[in-house]
Design a protein around this nucleic acid. Structure first.
Length: 410
RNA sequence: GCCAGGGUGGGGUAGUUGGUCAUCCUAGGGGACUGUGGAUCCCCCGACCCGGGUUCGAGUCUCGGCCCUGGCCCCA
């Protein structure tokens, strides 16, 4: 038997309805903040993704050549494509641009809990504005989105300037290595590495920085920073907004294109892959041939949000089943059409068996049975049987629709 | 790429130290039931992940692969 490819999933209607409901919530929230949807191709030129990260990540991508010999890749993320889109077509639009996307991405990685080879991201990009207010907006929007999705989470906010100030004398490779140790909270590894480089003196300050949870403590370690005022303003806005967060100077993010504020959000019940959102301030447009354009944004791991929500009951809607006799067939089709026009999910029984049999069938999954036989047909009426209460009435079509649509779904 | 634990009808399961090609539940389909409720009764469908090896004989032991689950690495 054929199987689906490793790391991919099928979704049955119950699950799709839940996913669409959460997706709709995210779209709705983003919309109220003024963010509008963009869509980019499922695949892009490979170079779009290697230009910044190097050829190493080809290993983790679905990269291929098309029949024309073009080197392409299924998108492993969507920020770069969106910024490519911006450079191609968005440069003349009035700034700032508030864009969101919801789409699937592909990475050739070992599947595990909350990690698949095809996965969905909901993300936003705020392009062309460079200010603490912009950064605060993005963080607050992230908070609103995840709150609306009804999950428990914690927000960790950092800033790359903190670490940079301590590492300013080192070359980029050394900085990167040190950031990795800190990101993993591997103090021993960091100590060993620093010793080997003859920089033992940095260890204490670095670990103290990574553990700092108050801005004053951070600045006491780093000394005055060039963008200190700006950082203070950002956190002042966040504090003033009532946001609950943890200051986390240890956040390094794997991505090189971040330039300032970085933040990550973690959810509960997720195992090893518990990060549901990551983002920050970055500069990417100039890499794709555009002008230097400050931006910030984030991406939500949609599938992880679904896992974090846990088991939920099915998304409910009122269901009407139509049982009919041969004499009532044409009227039944008319009635079903009118119910659907009123927005009610209405399913004709297709078996053609006895009414009793049809009603039995309907009662397994529907809230109402619409019974249409010779009598209803002659009177141009419909018998509405409420399957929860057992009561039934023969009603005119408009009254029948009102009766069903006026009910709460079960 | 690495480690651990797993793969028996669609879902969930039983299967002793190898020995009737396999249990039970559930779901699904059909029938009885002809204008009224998920009931009941009867029937049916349907599985040992794939391949090699050991053996008279493999669901059971062994090796490889595939896939699943969790973790490592990585996480743009």
């Amino acid at each position: 038997m054929l199987q689906k490819p490793r790391g991919t999933r099928d979704f049955l209607p119950d699950e799709m309805e839940q996913r669409r409901e959460v997706e709709g919530t995210m779209r709705q929230i983003a919309g109220t903040w003024g963010y509008r949807e963009v869509c980019t191709p499922e695949f892009e030129e490979l170079e779009l993704f290697t230009i910044r990260s190097g050829d190493g990540i080809i290993q983790e991508m679905y990269a291929f050549e098309d029949k024309g010999g073009r080197k392409l890749a299924l998108r492993p993320e969507i920020t770069a494509p969106v910024l490519r889109l911006y450079v191609n077509e968005g440069k003349t639009l009035p700034k700032p641009l508030r864009w969101f996307y919801f789409a699937d991405c592909f990475r050739y990685e070992r599947p595990q809990k909350g990690r698949y080879r095809q996965f969905w991201q909901f993300g936003i990009e705020l392009i062309g504005v460079d200010s603490p207010m912009a950064e605060a907006e993005v963080i607050l929007l992230a908070r609103d989105l995840l709150t609306a999705c009804d999950i428990s989470f914690s927000i960790h906010i950092g800033h790359l300037s903190f670490m940079r100030s301590l590492l300013s004398g080192l070359d980029p490779d050394e900085q990167k290595k040190i950031r990795m140790f800190l990101d993993k909270k591997d103090t021993e590894g960091l100590g060993a590495y620093l010793s080997s480089m003859g920089m033992e003196d940095l260890l204490e300050r670095l670990t103290a920085l990574a553990e700092s949870r108050r801005l004053d403590d951070v600045f006491a370690i780093t000394g005055d920073l060039q963008d200190q005022d700006r950082i203070e303003e950002l956190f002042s806005i966040l504090d003033g907004s009532g946001l609950e967060y943890t200051l986390d100077p240890g956040i390094a993010r794997g991505l090189d294109y971040y330039t300032g504020m970085v933040f990550e959000i973690f959810a509960e019940n997720l195992g090893a892959e518990n990060q549901v959102l990551g983002g920050g301030t970055y500069s990417l447009a100039h890499l794709f041939g555009g002008e230097e354009t400050p931006s910030c944004g984030f991406a939500i791991g949609f599938d992880r949000v679904m896992v974090a929500r846990g088991e939920r009951g099915p998304v409910s809607s009122t269901v009407a089943g139509v049982a009919f006799t041969p004499e009532g067939r044409d009227w039944a089709i008319t009635v079903a059409g009118a119910f659907r026009e009123a927005g009610i999910r209405t399913e004709l029984v297709l078996s053609g068996k006895s009414l009793g049999n049809q009603i039995s069938h309907i009662a397994r999954s529907a809230d109402y049975a619409l019974i249409i036989g010779e009598r209803e047909c002659e009177l141009r009426k419909v018998t509405v049987k409420n399957l929860r209460t057992g009561t039934q009435d023969m009603l005119l079509l408009t009254d029948a629709i009102r009766e069903v649509s006026g009910s709460e779904s079960c």
